[in-house]
Design a protein around this nucleic acid. Structure first.
Lengths: 201, 201
DNA sequence: GATATCACGATACGGTCGTATTGCAAAAAG
DNA sequence: CTTTTTGCAATACGACCGTATCGTGATATC
C-alpha cells in the first residue's frame, strides 16, 4: 500500500476552513474553490476528501458541533461544584461571542439550513437537548429555590445565554455586562450558592 | 412623461421576495435570477429597480427591519398598560419563531453579514437598541421590584426572548412553554402587575 | 399625432460555480 | 526493481452567477 495519511484529520482540517468561511461570509461563502484556498490546498484535494459540497457541509456541521462541545467542556474543566459548573457553562455560551465567534456565526448560518434539512436539524436539536439536559441536571443538583422547575428554568437559562451571546457578538453589550446578568439570575435561582467571585462586594 | 409606477412599492415587493429566499436557503440563495423568479418578474426588472446585488441586499435589510418593527407594533396595538405592553413585546419576539419565521431567519442570515458590513451592523444594532430602550422604559413604568435595574433587566429580557425564539423556531419548545417562561420572569420582576391571564389559576 | 421618456424584457458576456475526468508522483508489496 | 495502489494536482465542461447592453411597447407631454 502507498503512503498513508490520516483521512479523518485532513477532513476535519478542511471542514475547519469551511467553517471559517461560513463565519465570514455566511453559508453563501462556502465554495469548493474558496475552501481549498482557505485551507491552503488544491481544489482537487477537497474533492478527494469530500464526495461533494453537501458532504462537505455535513462534515462541517459535525465538526462545528464538536467544536462547541469542546469549548464548553473546556470551560467546566476545573469547576468547583454543580453551581459553579452551571455558571461556567452559561458563561461559556455567552462568551462564544468574543472567544469563539467563528463557531457561533457558523452555527447561525447552519440554523437557517436546519429548518429545511432534517439531518442538520437533528444535529442542531441533539446538541441543544444535550446542553439543556445538562443544565437541568446541574440545576437540580445545585439546591435551587423551591419554586424552580429545572426543565423550564434550563430552557430559560439556555435561551438567555444564547440571546446574550448575539448581543455580545455584535458589541451591543460587553461580556462583563452579560456575565453580570447571568450571575444575577443565578443568584436568584440558587439562593444558597456562591455565584461568581468568592467575595461579592 | 411615460407611465408611472410606484417605485418604492415595487422595490419592497422584490425585496420581500429576496427575504423569502433568505429565509429558505440562507443568504446563499439570494440570487438575482432566483429573486426574479420568486417575485414573479423578469431578471431584467430586478436590475431595473436595484443597482446591483449589494443594493438589493441593503434594501432587503431595511425592509426586514420594518417588517419586524411592524410585527411588534401590531402586537402591542391594544395593550392594557405598560406591563401588558412589555409582555406583548417580549411574546411577539418569541413568537417570531412560528408566526414570522421568514423575518427571523432572514435576520439570522443578515447577522453574519453584520459582523463585516458596517451598514448592516448599524442597522442591526439600531433596531436592537430601539427595542432595548423601549423595554427599559416600559420596565421602569411598570412598577418593577426595587432591585431591578431597567437597563440590565431589559438586556436580560430581550436576550431571553431572542434566545427562546430560536428554540421555538426549531421546535425545541412550544410557544406555550416559552410564553410561560417569559411570564414567570415578568411576574418576578413586576410583583404588583397582573401578568398573562387576568385570573392566574 | 408626433415624440421623448420610462418600464420592462431579452440577450450577451466574462467569471465562477460544482463536478467529472485525467495524469502523475510516491510509497508499500512482491 | 517492478508493480500496484493511493494521495493529490490539473484540466475540462456545462450551468449559473452578476452585470452590461440593446430592443420594444406604452404613456404623458407638446
Amino acid at each position: 500500500m502507498p503512503k498513508q495519511v490520516d483521512h479523518a484529520a485532513r477532513r476535519e482540517e478542511i471542514a475547519q476552513a469551511a467553517l471559517r468561511l461560513c463565519a465570514r461570509d455566511g453559508l453563501a461563502g462556502v465554495t469548493i474553490g474558496q475552501v481549498a484556498q482557505e485551507a491552503g490546498v488544491s481544489k482537487g484535494l477537497v474533492q478527494h476528501y469530500f464526495a461533494g459540497k453537501a458532504d462537505l457541509l455535513r462534515a462541517s456541521a459535525h465538526v462545528l458541533r464538536g467544536e462547541i462541545e469542546r469549548h464548553i467542556l473546556e470551560a467546566v474543566r476545573d469547576a468547583r461544584g454543580p453551581a459553579d459548573t452551571l455558571r461556567r457553562v452559561l458563561l461559556a455560551v455567552v462568551e462564544l461571542g468574543v472567544t469563539a465567534p467563528i463557531p457561533l456565526l457558523a452555527g447561525h448560518a447552519f440554523l437557517a439550513r436546519a429548518v429545511a434539512d432534517p439531518e442538520i436539524r437533528d444535529l442542531y436539536r441533539a446538541g441543544g437537548d444535550a446542553v439543556h439536559r445538562e443544565i437541568a441536571a446541574l440545576l437540580a443538583a445545585s439546591a435551587p429555590a423551591p419554586d424552580v422547575d429545572p426543565g423550564a428554568e434550563a430552557h430559560a437559562l439556555l435561551g438567555l445565554a444564547r440571546g446574550l451571546s448575539d448581543g455580545v457578538l455584535l458589541g451591543d453589550l460587553g461580556v462583563g455586562d452579560a456575565a453580570a446578568i447571568v450571575d444575577h439570575h443565578l443568584r436568584r435561582i440558587l439562593p444558597g450558592a456562591a455565584i461568581g467571585s468568592d467575595s461579592p462586594s
